Amino acid sequence: MTSPTGEIYRIDWLPGTDILHGTCHCGAEHTAQDPIEMWEWMLGHPEGHAPRGQERGPEQ
């Protein structure tokens, strides 16, 4: 999905499972079984994730 601001969100279903794998426009990744949980995670910037390669500090 592409947002109105041009950000790309991607959700893939892992075949043979009930698992969804999401990749946010910032590069962060997440897995979940519930599609609602996945979208809340993706749209919840900056809570819940940081871009790939960045460690989350205590203030985040």
Rank of each mutant, 00 (worst) to 15 (best):
W13T: 13
T31R: 14
H25M: 04
G16V: 06
D34H: 11
D34C: 10
E47D: 04
P4S: 07
E37C: 02
G53E: 06
H45K: 00
T5Q: 09
D12I: 04
P4I: 01
H25L: 03
P35E: 02
G48E: 00
P4H: 04
A50C: 15
L14P: 03
R10A: 03
T31I: 15
G22A: 15
E59L: 10
G16M: 09
Q60K: 14
C26D: 10
L20F: 12
L14N: 12
Y9R: 04
P58V: 05
T5W: 15
P15G: 09
C26L: 06
R56D: 03
A32F: 03
Q60Y: 15
M38E: 01
T5L: 15
E29F: 06
M42H: 04
M1V: 06
Q54H: 15
L20E: 05
Q54K: 15
I19W: 14
G27Q: 04
H49W: 09
H25S: 14
P15Q: 11
Q60L: 14
Q33W: 07
H45D: 00
M42L: 14
M1N: 02
G44E: 07
E47V: 05
T17P: 10
H49F: 09
T31M: 11
Q54S: 13
Q54V: 14
G6P: 05
Q33M: 13
P51K: 06
D18Y: 10
G27R: 10
W39Y: 12
E59H: 15
Y9I: 04
T17C: 11
H49S: 06
L20P: 11
M42W: 03
D12S: 08
T23Q: 12
S3N: 02
I36E: 02
L14A: 12
H45L: 00
I8L: 11
D18F: 07
Y9C: 03
H49E: 00
T31S: 13
G22S: 08
A50Q: 14
S3Y: 05
P51L: 05
P46Y: 08
I11H: 01
R52S: 10
I11D: 00
H45R: 07
A28C: 12
G16A: 12
C24Y: 12
E40K: 09
G44P: 06
P46Q: 02
G22Q: 09
C24M: 09
W41D: 00
A32N: 10
H21G: 00
M1Y: 02
A32T: 04
P35T: 02
P58I: 03
E29L: 03
E59W: 15
M1T: 03
G6D: 00
D34V: 05
A28N: 12
I8S: 06
A32D: 11
M42S: 00
G22E: 06
W13E: 10
Q33G: 13
G48Q: 02
R52L: 07
D12Y: 12
R52M: 08
S3E: 01
P58Q: 07
A50P: 10
T2P: 00
G27A: 03
C24D: 10
G53I: 07
M38R: 05
Q60P: 05
H21V: 08
Y9F: 15
